[in-house]
Amino acid sequence: MDFDLMITSFPKLLGATIVTLKLLSASLFFGLFLGLFFAILRLNKNIFINKFAYGYSYIIRGTPLLVQIFIIYFGLGQIEYLRTTFLWVILKEPYWCAIIAFTLNTGAYTSEILRSAFQTIKPGIIEAGKSLGISNKIIFYKIQIPIAIRQSLPAYGNEIILMMKGTSLASTVTLMDLTGVAKYIISTTFKPIEVFIVAGGIYLFMTFIIHNVIKYLEKKYSFQ
């Protein structure tokens, strides 16, 4: 055991954790809106809209995140037309490519979580709202969405942890996140176990925090 390496690599890895957290928070923020959007599409009665949303989540959930990142980072740059538009400013940056890929990915999983949450809402609650003369729009925003969010908290907590692990793939498109820096230190010192303990410890710590925050929120917003 090389404890000196563990101590010297800790600040470097901690610095890289900020990149990981930035990637995570940005993709979760955009992904939540995307997920809500697709969940609403899934509940739509129009078969084409419904099938479109289903197809989106099927494709994203059936392919590895690595493929999705590579298509966006390496693939999209190949389209000549894209290079002339303003989108190129975003797509030439690996940072934004990673965020786009993560957002699309977490959006698909979130849409599934929210959809099943919407479907578990008892019809009686909506009917009660209707009989009180509340408009459909307000029933949706003030009754259905809050209940759905509460219902989906445990599953969404898992999704946050999965996404946090997913951000490690940003290191494959040259970004120096926690895994990227860990790999760099491992390949220069050839001490994989020490670096794994420190980097893995940081990841576990983040998992622990997320897990407890979700647990607290579950308790705070429980119906009982």
Partner: peptide, 22 residues
């Protein structure tokens, strides 16, 4: 189970890749 589910897959693969033969 906690360790594996809390640490990215890629990091585990690097551990095996660089540390396996050692």
């Amino acid at each position: 189970t906690t360790l594996i589910r809390g640490v990215p897959e890629l990091l585990v693969i690097y551990l095996f890749f660089f540390g396996g033969s050692g």
